[in-house]
């Protein structure tokens, strides 16, 4: 009796799996921790309406597997440990993803639209001979997606005709999934030969900062050419620390060497959508607006009343930043909610 009902259940499960082959999310991780955009990718995967499998590949994956298996909505975690995955080079990861795809026939493969996802997903897509969809901001249904083109100045809705859909998703448009207490089951990813003798990871030079990470911060303060020097950015850091904000920059400030390029917000830098974005000494070129115009509240401080940034700012202050930024830092304690 028990056996036969179990057999039936298995059969149902089997049919279920056959009809809905599910979505594979490629987990991004660094130094044994899940990178937050992975949780946004899981949210996007859930919207596709079928089972969600997460693939964790690396040199030592156990801590990442236990972390990501707690994400709500994840049905299964595949793990693959191999020295060849050092630095997560796409030349090594691609054969693993192709092997997983062969075994499980996913309908969708999803990753966050970070430097990692953008580097990897198109390589996998070409191997599968499909056209990937980059930086998706909305999912209408399993084959219809929304994305921006022309630096965020146009919104394109498209239908993907390929059998397998490969997507990178914009982290700021999909809230991170919740983390539960119980973990999804994990298993070893399909075995495949990973031999990469064409690319070699040497090292990373990461900018160290105590401040929140730019793309996930609730508040962001950004500086532009108006700051005049790298030293003057400390005015922004002082204000940012009181607000627990991340600090960003325009391309002009990066090109002038005021700050490192990983702080750049814009079409070619990071895309942010915090609750509060304060643009200081930034004119507001199209390319910068592409990276921040979905922020909830935008404040602009600029001495030029004609600066385009004022056209998107909710609150604008026409003033010399060197006077008003220190004044804000001094007065903010009286206003800030504890």
């Amino acid at each position: 009796m028990f056996l036969s009902s179990r057999a039936k259940l298995n059969q149902c499960g089997y049919l279920f799996l056959r009809r809905f082959k599910g979505t594979l999310v490629i987990a991004e991780h660094n130094e044994g921790k899940v990178v937050p955009i992975t949780y946004s990718a899981i949210t996007a995967a859930k919207q596709l309406g079928s089972e969600v499998t997460v693939l964790v590949a690396g040199t030592e994956t156990s801590s990442v597997v236990s972390e990501v298996s707690k994400a709500e909505g994840v049905n299964k975690v595949l793990s693959a440990d191999n020295e060849a995955f050092k630095g997560l080079l796409p030349e090594s990861l691609t054969p693993l993803i192709i092997a997983s795809q062969k075994q499980f026939s996913f309908t969708h493969i999803v990753a966050g639209a970070s430097a990692f996802g953008k580097n990897l997903i198109p390589r996998v897509a070409a191997k599968l001979d499909v056209s990937p969809i980059s930086d998706v901001i909305g999912i209408k249904n399993a084959d219809t997606f929304v994305r921006t083109i022309y630096a965020g100045n146009a919104i394109q809705t498209l239908k993907a005709k390929d059998a397998v859909k490969l997507l990178t998703v914009r982290g700021t448009n999909f809230a991170a999934c919740a983390l539960g207490s119980s973990g999804a089951p994990s298993e070893k990813a399909p075995a495949c030969e990973i031999k990469n003798d064409i690319s070699f990871w040497i090292n990373q030079e990461l900018s160290k900062s105590e401040r929140p990470e730019l793309t996930s911060a609730k508040r962001v303060i950004s500086g532009g050419r108006g700051l005049k020097s790298g030293d003057n950015f400390k005015l922004l850091y002082e204000l940012a620390d009181k607000l627990k904000a991340a600090v960003g920059a325009s391309r002009a400030a990066v090109d002038a060497g005021f700050v490192p390029n990983d702080m750049q917000v814009g079409q070619t830098g990071k895309i942010v959508a915090p609750e509060l974005y304060v643009a200081i000494g930034i004119s507001g070129a199209i390319q910068h607006l592409a990276g921040m115009k979905d922020s909830k509240t935008i404040v602009a401080i600029n001495k030029d009343p004609e600066a385009p940034i004022f056209q998107v700012a909710d609150l604008g202050l026409v003033a010399d930043l060197f006077k008003v930024v220190p004044e804000m830092t001094e007065k903010i304690d009286q206003y800030i909610s504890k």
Partner: peptide
């Protein structure tokens, strides 16, 4: 073609903001 473009539209425009006089 591997995709069909359904539509291309303007992004939502932001409400015009206000200028403030002081910090």
């Amino acid at each position: 073609s591997r995709i069909e473009v359904i539509s291309v539209e303007d992004p939502p425009t932001r409400e015009a903001g206000t200028k403030v006089e002081s910090v």
